[in-house]
Design a protein around this nucleic acid. Structure first.
Length: 744
DNA sequence: CTTTCTATGCTTTTT
DNA sequence: GCATAGAAAG
């Protein structure tokens, strides 16, 4: 029996079709990751392809790590030389090697959204753009979408001819690019754009990567934008062994430039493309799946397909309407608590999903008072916090003195008595001579206008030079300690009595931990940990990457973050018109906006394996004022037969009124009070068909040695086994190919 | 040059 | 309702 026997017919077809372009239309929960990992295994084991020649692109670092691990479990060895990464980190890797060909230094800095905004402010000031009329945000948005569509500064200017507003944007775009380059910095979009530019202009580089990546796979293809498409086309241009996996129904990143045409027109772009549909869902109960299908059916522009499953009907979908968001959160938290206390679920089996990050706050409060462990994904990025950015700016300055933004950020942090006027004078001097800010600082005695603060500036420059000299023979963590020590950064915080300062110090400790673990993981991989390497990793992590399946906590996140994940019990909160679908999408002229929200709803529903709870509130505080919302139109698209409601479900939406709200509150309250508890459901693994060992048994694995089986879950046609290995730690693997042997 | 007060805008979603 | 940015005062 081979490992491929566990796949269904379509999955197997996708695995065996290795030559030429292939589009896999994979519905939610149809086992696309399994297909991809098996396909890689097949290439290596059966076709003898060198792992080095395989490139797999995923959406997040977490997905990349999981894919590598799963391939590792299948193949056993060689998987470390497969390139599994996100678009962005792949581009950084290529650019670190070759970007000097485009006139940048190879140790360029990556600018995050905050840095972009700061730079944009400078640009607007310099060009005397009225930021009341042209907001930084919208300028950046315009530039970002131009970059995503591969429109250069010159092209943009040409297209803007005759339009005053667009000409202004073109001007800003040009200056913004100029300053980025002067700072030797790239923003997120540039990472992709510059890589495409590099491949287009350097035939030898293109050929090198084309030969290297003979087999390319792209996950979440529905969310690729024009640059990403171009990049993939270039790389696959020679061998055309391109396999893309996607689901047009799960395309939820249009706002980021995702081009749904990339999937709808794949067959046109790549001649002789094979198209395979995966329509069997292995994840959810038929009730959940039917509800999801009923919702998504309302969208017009989609490839026709209907997911089916031979999983059982399962439980009804729970629906509850509450008077306000407070009650909603309380219900969800107490429901989770009840489930866990009854032994039916672990905390980590439950996820709370919502449309906007702002909704997390209420849940957080409730989780804290109820003493339920939780983790919020998203919101303010750890690396975007002030203290972290400050310290990283020191590292950036030491690493790449050309990054003016970083230098200016820290020149007076902690306070050194260097004020804005001084900084501006240095800036003007530097701009005049077209040199960097830091460069100007090194020769401060040549700047006549700042003679009075020259001493302070000089000692700052000397401090940085000192760090630079020390950094040569120091590890990153030692350097960080030195910076904290000599600048007195933490000392200053300690003097602050406010509670906030304590948090800041904790965050700094956390940063130090992250540096140490970066150094450790580099050494494990046999690489020298570099400062640039650390800064780059930090710039490209998403919060979702820190999600850990082994810790028992409830996960809270936005629907966007939840893509690609699954949970036994999903709570979908805030199902109200105006919140989800968002107010913006309802009022937009383009009906496709609501369709995108509907896809988001589809993604949310299909995250659930066994239980789904939908909730909404009549009244909600938004931006300091109370809003009265109708329940979401998406709710009404779910047939009643799948729902179990605690309240009277109103078919006809009525005008909001205080009296009605009050009545509904009463109903909601009654529903809560008299809600019947459904008996715990057994999710049984069929008797006699087990993998030959049980939880608690000791087993042996070819590569990982002996270990203890801690969990067995039924997934699709196979069993997913979790083993605590004596030497290799905890691993999850499929029984079919892990070939575990019971040890007596 | 630093601190404190006031006004403004924001909430869609993220690598 | 909060965070941030800019103005005013010290």
């Amino acid at each position: 029996m081979s490992i491929y026997d566990s796949l269904n017919e379509q999955q197997r077809e996708a695995v065996y079709h290795t030559e030429g372009p292939l589009l896999i239309l994979a519905g939610a929960g149809s086992g696309k990751t399994r297909v991809l990992t098996h396909r890689i295994a097949y290439l290596i084991e059966e076709l003898g392809v060198n792992p080095w020649n395989i490139l797999a692109i995923t959406f997040t670092n977490k997905a990349a790590g999981e894919m590598r691990e799963r391939v590792d479990n299948l193949v056993g060895f060689g998987s470390e030389s497969i390139w599994v990464s996100t678009f962005h980190s792949m581009c950084v890797r290529i650019l670190r090697r070759y970007i000097d060909r485009l006139g940048y230094d190879n140790n360029f800095t990556i600018y995050d959204t905050d840095d972009q905004k700061t730079l944009m402010k400078d640009v607007c000031k310099y060009l005397q753009v009225d930021t009341k009329v042209y907001k930084e945000r919208s300028l950046l948005a315009a530039i970002s979408s131009a970059k995503n569509e591969l429109i250069s500064v010159e092209e943009y200017a040409l297209q803007a001819e005759g339009d005053f507003g667009r000409k202004k944007i073109a001007q800003v775009y040009a200056e913004f690019e100029k300053q980025l380059k002067a700072n030797n910095a790239l923003d997120f979009d540039d990472l992709l754009v510059k890589t495409v530019q590099l491949l287009q202009t350097q035939p030898d580089v293109l050929e090198y990567y084309q030969n290297r990546f003979r087999y390319i796979m792209v996950d979440e293809y529905q969310d690729t934008n024009t640059v990403q498409f171009q990049l993939v086309s270039l790389l696959a241009g020679k061998y055309k062994n391109l396999c893309v996996v996607g689901d047009d129904d799960q395309s939820i990143y249009k706002f980021r430039g995702a081009n749904i045409r990339n999937i709808l027109n794949f067959e046109r772009e790549f001649e002789d493309a094979r198209v395979i549909k995966l329509e069997q869902n292995y994840r959810s109960t038929s009730t959940i799946l039917n509800a999801a299908n009923a919702v998504i059916r309302n969208n017009k522009g989609r490839k026709d397909k209907t997911l089916w499953t031979d999983n059982g009907e399962g439980e009804h979908i729970q629906f509850r309407q509450f008077d306000n968001a407070y009650d909603e959160a309380e219900y969800i938290v107490s429901d989770i608590k009840e489930q866990v206390e009854s032994g039916r679920r672990n905390y980590k089996d439950c996820a709370v999903l919502y449309r906007t990050n702002a909704q997390s706050r209420m849940f957080e409060e409730k989780f804290v008072v109820s003493n339920v462990p939780y983790k919020i994904v998203g919101g303010v990025n750890f690396y975007a916090r002030r203290e972290i950015k400050d310290l990283l700016s020191y590292l950036k300055t030491i690493d790449n003195g050309k990054d003016d933004l970083a230098v200016r950020r820290i020149i007076n942090v902690p306070k050194r008595g260097i004020g804005l006027t001084t900084i501006n004078r240095v800036q003007d001097y530097a701009a005049e001579r077209e040199i960097g800010f830091y460069e100007a600082l090194l020769a401060v005695d040549l700047i006549p206008s700042v003679r009075r603060s020259a001493g302070k500036l000089e000692s700052f420059a000397a401090l940085i030079e000192h760090f630079k000299a020390e950094s040569v023979h120091m590890s990153i963590s030692e350097l960080m300690d030195l910076i904290i020590e000599e600048t007195g950064y933490v000392e200053e915080l300690q003097a602050d009595t406010q509670e906030e300062a304590e948090n800041r110090i904790e965050n700094i400790e956390e940063l130090k931990n992250k540096i140490v673990s970066f150094e450790e993981s580099c050494e494990e991989a046999g690489e020298q940990p570099t400062l640039s390497g650390f800064l780059e990793e930090v710039a490209l992590v998403a919060d979702i990457d820190s999600l850990d399946e082994n810790t028992d906590y409830v996960v809270l996140m936005t629907l966007h973050s939840a893509k690609g994940l699954e949970f036994p019990h999903v709570y979908l909160a805030g199902l109200e018109d105006g919140l989800f679908p968002s107010y913006m999408s309802i009022t937009a002229d383009d009906p496709d906006e609501v369709e995108e929200e509907r896809r988001l709803c589809y993604v949310g529903i299909t995250r659930a394996r066994e239980d789904l709870t939908l909730t909404c509130a009549r009244r909600r505080m938004v931006r300091g004022e109370t809003q009265y919302n109708k329940m979401s139109r998406f709710l009404k698209e779910i047939p009643m037969e799948y729902l179990s409601t605690g309240t009277v479900f109103e078919k006809e939406p009525e005008e909001s009124g205080k009296k009605l709200a009050y009545q509904q509150a009463r109903q909601a309250f009654k529903a809560k009070a008299f809600a019947v508890n459904t008996p715990p459901k057994q999710f049984a693994v069929k008797d006699g068909a087990g993998p030959g060992y049980d939880v608690g048994d000791r087993v042996r694995h070819v590569k990982f040695g002996e270990g203890l089986v801690t969990q067995i879950t039924e997934g699709g046609r196979d069993y997913e086994v979790t083993v605590q290995f004596d030497a290799a730690g905890v691993k999850k693997m499929f029984a079919m190919f892990a070939k575990l042997v019971k040890v007596d």
